[in-house]
Structures are given as structure tokens and as C-alpha cells.
Computed example of a mutant assay.
Amino acid sequence: MPSRSAERTGAAAWHAAAPEVELWSDYDPAVRELPGVALGRRTLPGTAEAEITELHRAGVRCLRLTEPVRLCADAPAASARALMLLREATGQGLAVLWQAVCTDGCAARRRFHHLYPPERLTGGPDGLAADWRATYYPSKCVFRRGPGFVEVRDRRFGTLELFTIDEPGHLAQLEALAEGVEAGLLPDAVRRDFTEAGLIAEQAGRAWFLPMRVRRWPFPSLTV
């Protein structure tokens, strides 16, 4: 069992690994070259949801992750936090410029293919980045809350998979999983069930929830 000192060190490293982003107020690459459209660089130390919500309210419509993002299980905290930021930005409808890195073949499993596609994928199979871009559409893996349950609608792998989360122990962990919780603190049943369903990633000692919250339905909504 990790010592309290090790836990504090791990938590400090996680919180210190804040993503740095470059910001613009428009989606269009040509428009982003115009004066006044670039909004500079910023480090985002807060929670992914709060940071992206604030950026959107401030008029940001495109951001660039300044560092490559590793997709693999051994990804550092900086990459895990960048992926959670990417999840929230995708759900909010922002364009994201980023570069992905994969060295263990995980990218081919399409676990992250509901996220805004990368400009480049280093280390993945030939053509995978192009396929990611060609098959991407909004709300590919989302969740929404109902009274006493959460429904996940997942089309990352082609066909629609529906998951209804209604066990109290599982529901109780969702808020923490949204921003990453120490994987060893998850109840065994919760960790097993979410892992088997492909709904969580584990990186840098943390588990985090992959589906995006529904902010708006795309048209036509039946595609979700």
C-alpha cells in the first residue's frame, strides 16, 4: 500500500501537470491569422470542465495543446490531464489542434476516437489518424443524467452501445472520475465494470471517465 507521503507526492505531481494551450476566437485557420483573433497562451490549472466552460464563455473557439499528448497506459499526468481537457473541449464544440503519440498500439483500439481528432498521430498504424478524422462526428460517446441513473451512448466502435449506470456505488464515483481519481481508491466492482465497458482510462495512477457530458444534441439527434 502506498505511503501517505507517496500519495501526497502523486497528488502534487498530478495538480502540477497543468496543460498549456494557445487560444483563438475563431475556428477558421485563415481567420485565425487576422489581427485580434489570437488570444495568447495560457496554463490551465483548474478542473477540465471549469476551464473549458470559462474559455467558451470568454469567446474562445479554438485551442492548441502546446505539447504532444501520449495515449498509452504509461502516459504521464500531463497527457492524462490534456486528454480530459480535450474531452471537455470536444463536448463544448471547440476545435482542438493537437498531436497524439502512441507506442503500445492502444490507438488502434479507438478508445479515444470520440475526441476531436489529432492533426498527427506518431507511432500509430498507417492511416489511423486519417481514419480518425474521416469517421469523427460530435457526441460519439456521451453521457446524460436522469433521475437516479446515468445513460452512456457509445458509437466509438461503429455500432451503438447503451450503458445504464444506476448502482449507487457506481454513480457515487462519477463526479470524482470526471477529473481523475486515484485508481486504487475505486471500489473493485466499479473499477472492474467501468474498465470492461471501456468507459474509463487509467494513466499516471489515475482513472478518469471517457464519455463526454451532453451539452447540446447534434442534428439529427438519432445519429447519437
Rank of each mutant, 00 (worst) to 15 (best):
S3D: 11
R4K: 03
E7L: 02
A11R: 09
A11W: 10
H15M: 14
A17T: 13
A17N: 08
E22C: 08
S25G: 13
P29H: 05
P29L: 08
P35W: 03
G36M: 12
P45T: 00
A48R: 03
I52C: 05
H56W: 09
A58Y: 06
G59W: 05
V60C: 02
C62S: 13
E67F: 10
L71S: 04
D74A: 07
A75V: 06
A77F: 01
A77Y: 03
A80P: 02
A82E: 00
L85Y: 02
L86N: 04
T90L: 05
G91D: 04
Q92H: 15
A95N: 03
V96L: 08
T103E: 09
G105L: 10
G105S: 11
A108K: 07
A108W: 09
R109Q: 13
F112P: 04
H114P: 00
L115T: 00
P117C: 09
P117R: 08
P118I: 11
P118G: 11
P118H: 14
P118L: 13
G124R: 09
P125F: 02
A129C: 10
A129S: 11
T135W: 12
T135K: 15
Y137L: 14
P138R: 10
R144L: 10
R144Y: 12
R145D: 03
G146H: 15
G148E: 03
V150T: 12
V152W: 06
R153Y: 09
L160Y: 00
T164R: 15
T164K: 14
D166R: 14
P168W: 09
L171E: 09
A172P: 00
A172N: 05
Q173P: 07
L174H: 00
G180D: 00
A183D: 05
D188L: 03
D188M: 07
R191M: 05
D193Y: 03
G198A: 03
L199W: 02
I200Q: 06
Q203T: 03
A204I: 07
A204N: 02
R206W: 00
L210F: 00
L210I: 00
L210S: 02
P211N: 14
V214I: 10
R216A: 14
W217S: 08
P218T: 01
P218H: 07
S221I: 11
L222F: 10
T223N: 12
